[in-house]
């Protein structure tokens, strides 16, 4: 398949302008879901169409793009999206290094390497409405957001503690943005939630199928919902990475045999790789 006849980064300029306008509104009202005219993309809904449209609208030929899925650059969906941009955005550089990237499109993780000013995080969002399990009608949830009526969400957290002794959502744990809007952080593990708080990077969220964009501007307060006496605790597997030894990163569990053998490795492949290189260099020195 050739990609001749398509505009830079696939979307036509009119569509990009429309999305950028929606993004500006989203940045101006942090955490608020802004409806946008999501287009059909050549990738299926639920596979990152929202994130791809956001990236396509903000990317330029001078950008350096990193795409991760589950924290890794080499998962199939990340590869597929990176190849898509390499094909439709001539001149665009791609990277696996967090530090080098100007735009990082992600599904389900925030990199371990701290983000810096000038970087843009683009989150793929399957379900932008944090209240949908409690109230499926979007006409009603819209009203609840408008009235900042979030008692219902707190009731759910209460129930989690009453039943399980802890807040139950291990991922996509709802956050309050700038003290005003309840927001779904996308299905990142709760371990990553604190990284959103006062982040120097611009964080953009795209939900293609649900046709919503939202944003957290740099240095914005992002608080995970909790109770004063049951504070939010980010969770990770207790253990350290079998490859780089890190004991402070989010770990993937690898089942090594069918007799219950398992080991843990960093979910963030770039971070883990860098640590291994560094350790090798130190050993050599």
């Amino acid at each position: 398949m050739t990609t001749e006849g398509y505009n830079f980064a696939y979307l036509d300029e009119g569509t990009k302008r429309m999305i950028r306008r929606a993004l500006l509104k989203a940045v101006a009202v942090p955490g608020h879901q802004v409806p946008f005219g999501s287009r059909e993309m050549p990738l299926p809904y639920g596979w990152g169409t929202g994130g791809i449209q956001v990236t396509a609208s903000v990317v330029g030929p001078d950008d350096v793009l990193k795409v991760i899925d589950q924290g890794a650059d080499d998962t199939t969906n990340a590869v597929s999206i990176r190849r898509f941009f390499a094909r439709v955005a001539p001149g665009l550089r791609t990277t696996e290094r967090t530090a080098e990237a100007t735009i990082i499109q992600t599904r389900h993780r925030i990199p371990e390497t701290p983000l810096r000013e000038g970087q843009v995080m683009v989150y793929q969002v399957p379900q932008p409405e944090p209240l949908f399990k409690l109230e499926p009608r979007r006409a009603e949830t819209k009203r609840l957001h408008a009235l900042a009526d979030y008692g219902l969400m707190q009731v759910k957290l209460y129930e989690d503690i009453a039943r399980h002794g802890r807040v139950g959502s291990s991922y996509d744990h709802p956050v309050m943005v700038g003290g005003r809007y309840l927001m779904a952080p996308s299905p990142i593990p709760s371990f990553d939630n604190p990284k959103m708080h006062l982040s120097p990077a611009l964080q953009l969220f795209g939900a293609g199928r649900e046709r919503r964009l939202y944003a957290v501007p740099p240095y914005t307060e992002v608080r995970s919902l909790d109770f004063d006496d049951h504070p939010f605790v980010p969770l990770r597997a207790s253990g350290s990475c079998a490859l780089c030894g890190a004991d402070h990163t989010y770990l993937d569990e690898m089942v090594t045999d069918d007799r219950g053998g398992r080991l843990f490795v960093c979910s963030d492949t770039d971070y883990c790789g860098e640590r291994q290189e560094q350790q090798a260099a130190e050993r050599a020195a």
């Binding site: 899925d69 802890r166 291990s170 597997a237 569990e253």
Partner: peptide, 28 residues
Amino acid sequence: VEATGFLEHLKLPHYVDFQSELEVVRAM
């Protein structure tokens, strides 16, 4: 097109989320 995409995205890896669920179940 919306429905099939979202349904089929369940085939994508979810192991970060699943890992979190594992940890919660173990802790409980």
